[in-house]
């Protein structure tokens, strides 16, 4: 009898886990289909009411595109209080979803180290996580022809006592230690510099998100990091870290891409989304999203002025 009760409890618990798991992914996928994606707050509030109704709106063959993104990289991709995906990358994809009737976008998240392998495995169709091109990534994945924005460039993020650091050379001269987030674009810049100037300064690798690194900078455990200045300051403010300041910018804005698997499906999707992104940029919708979410149109302006638009 005891055994039976135990078995019953186990089965119920397992079922509960499975069902709640399905439920949460469903709501997140439908949040992408809400009508007005421009303003993130309305999107969030209407998401729950709109669930399920969207597939009916779109006629013909609708291709479900599974996007993998991060859940804590504000303001680009994060989960808000209601567990809805928000942020610049998410809003751009939502706008593409509205624009293009042939696709329906659903969002999923996982650890950074599992994102790109998830493309290989076919679990995800594309990755939107403010990714820049690197030689290594280009060998293995497909980037399409059209970036969806530019990053603002990497700033030296440090404490007031080091805010006079304007370049990598300054860090090297002061024997600073630079925190590097594993896999980040900015880490690539640091590594490129160190390839040219071996042992110029110390690095310390982090497998964590920016807030953990900022806390270590604020506490003096590491001297600085290279990251998006605006993001870092907003995070520092959220976490009440009062002694985070910006030094100089060490890199210029670079194009940011959706990353696809390097196969037929990836190429096909990229062609479609390239066209959509271009349309968003031309119509000014992209600038609108940038203004709304990032507080400045710079990310979109750099793209509109770039050579990619002329192709």
């Amino acid at each position: 009898m005891k055994r039976r009760i135990l078995a019953f409890i186990t089965v119920t618990a397992l079922m509960a886990t499975v069902f709640t798991g399905c439920g949460s992914s469903k709501t997140s996928s439908n949040s992408a289909n809400t009508s007005s994606a421009a303003s993130s707050s309305t999107a969030a509030s209407s998401a729950s009411s709109a669930s399920g109704s969207t597939s009916a709106e779109k006629t013909g063959d609708v291709d479900t595109v599974t996007v993998v993104t991060a859940n804590s990289y504000a303001p680009f991709c994060y989960l808000d209080k209601n567990n809805e995906y928000q942020g610049f990358d998410v809003d751009v994809l939502k706008a593409i979803d509205d624009l293009d009737d042939s696709i329906s976008i659903k969002f999923e998240t996982c650890d950074w180290s599992a994102m790109l392998p998830g493309l290989d495995a076919g679990r995800y169709d594309l990755c939107a996580y403010q990714l820049g091109k690197t030689d290594e990534r280009e060998q293995m994945y497909y980037f399409g022809q059209m970036p969806y924005c530019y990053d603002a460039g990497g700033a030296i993020i440090t404490t007031p006592e080091h805010s006079s650091w304007k370049s990598f050379d300054d860090i090297a001269a002061a024997h600073g230690t630079v925190a590097c987030i594993v896999g980040s674009n900015f880490t690539n810049y640091v590594e490129d510099y160190l390839d040219k100037h071996p042992n110029a300064f110390q690095t310390k690798y982090y497998d964590s998100e920016l807030p953990a690194v900022l806390e270590d900078i604020a506490n003096g455990r590491v001297d600085c990091t290279i990251n998006d200045g605006a993001v870092a300051l907003s995070k520092a403010k959220d976490d009440n870290l009062t002694n985070i300041e910006l030094g100089g910018y060490v890199t210029e804005g670079t194009p940011i891409w959706f990353v696809y698997a390097n196969n037929d499906r990836g190429h096909e999707l990229a062609a479609k989304l390239d066209k959509d992104t271009k349309e968003l940029a031309q119509s000014g919708k992209l600038a609108e999203i940038a203004k709304d979410v990032l507080g400045s149109t710079k990310a979109a302006d750099l793209l509109t002025e770039s050579e990619y638009m002329k192709k």
Partner: peptide, 8 residues
């Protein structure tokens, strides 16, 4: 792996 995206 982070440098090269060759996680597996």
């Amino acid at each position: 792996a982070g440098r090269s995206s060759k996680f597996l």
